[in-house]
Amino acid sequence: MADQTVPAVGTAGPARRQSGFFARHSTWLLLAPGIVWMVLFLVVPLGMMVYVSFWTQTTFSISSDLTLQSWITFFSSETYFGALLRTLKIWIIVLALTFVIGYPTALFIGQFVRDKTVQTILLVTCVIPFWTSFLIRVLAWRPMLGLEGAINIVLLRLGIISEPIEVLLFTELSVVIGMVQIYVVFMVGPIAFMLARIDESLIEAARDLGASTWTIFRKIIFPLSLPGVVVGAIFVSVMVLGEFATASALSGRKVNLLGNIIVTQVGSLKWAFAAVIGVVLTVIMAIVIGGLLRVVNLRREL
């Protein structure tokens, strides 16, 4: 036995020395593509955005002389600061509604449907609207919500209302309706996934220990689904905070979110000002995601 292992080490020695460089630096070599990618497409653009936000902007030109002017304009203007507040308001409302609508749906799919096949079918059904383009999904709300839209016609014919409801379209309400419909599925998915992973034996154990269904939900099912809620909330938040298309399509350009302002500023080549809003949005998202991740330790739960 020992006689055989000694020469084996001898032959393996040189081979190992040849690959020494790769062996010793394998961690960094494997990380390199990722690092290069992130630096080129995340760190550098972010740095550029912050840098450009301090550039001097005049009506027709932009120069790299550093100034706080764009920042001052943003925070002192009723229009722009108001857009920030409106963005936050719509984000909170949409987040709350997607949770209120999404959680029961996920609960049904993840807990009440025990058949894995049916679960999959139901989740796929939730995604079917995504087979059409984003713009079509948004614009399809117009004939639904308009003054002579489907909802008003049905309600009028049923005699529930005598005048068509005007607030349905081209208001904040229509923006909220559109966004909730589009983003609710991003809440349902992660929550349903976490709920489906809850072992049936936990629920049986809790029941056997004397807990009622409501107690089991509060103490077992909901806490265990919380990581799914957080992931869903992050998805919805990131998408809603950067939204501009739904707002412009369903509000008739009356509801301006930060995203819409970026679009118009870039359209009129006001790069410095657009960069200011970009930085503000990025900071808000970082705070929101950081805050949500504090709610639950995702690394431990997933």
């Binding site: 936990l202 049986e204 154990a205 056997d208």
Partner: peptide
């Protein structure tokens, strides 16, 4: 009822 899989709350 003590389950085979323990059923502890994680």
């Amino acid at each position: 009822f003590v389950q085979q899989s323990y059923g502890l709350f994680p």
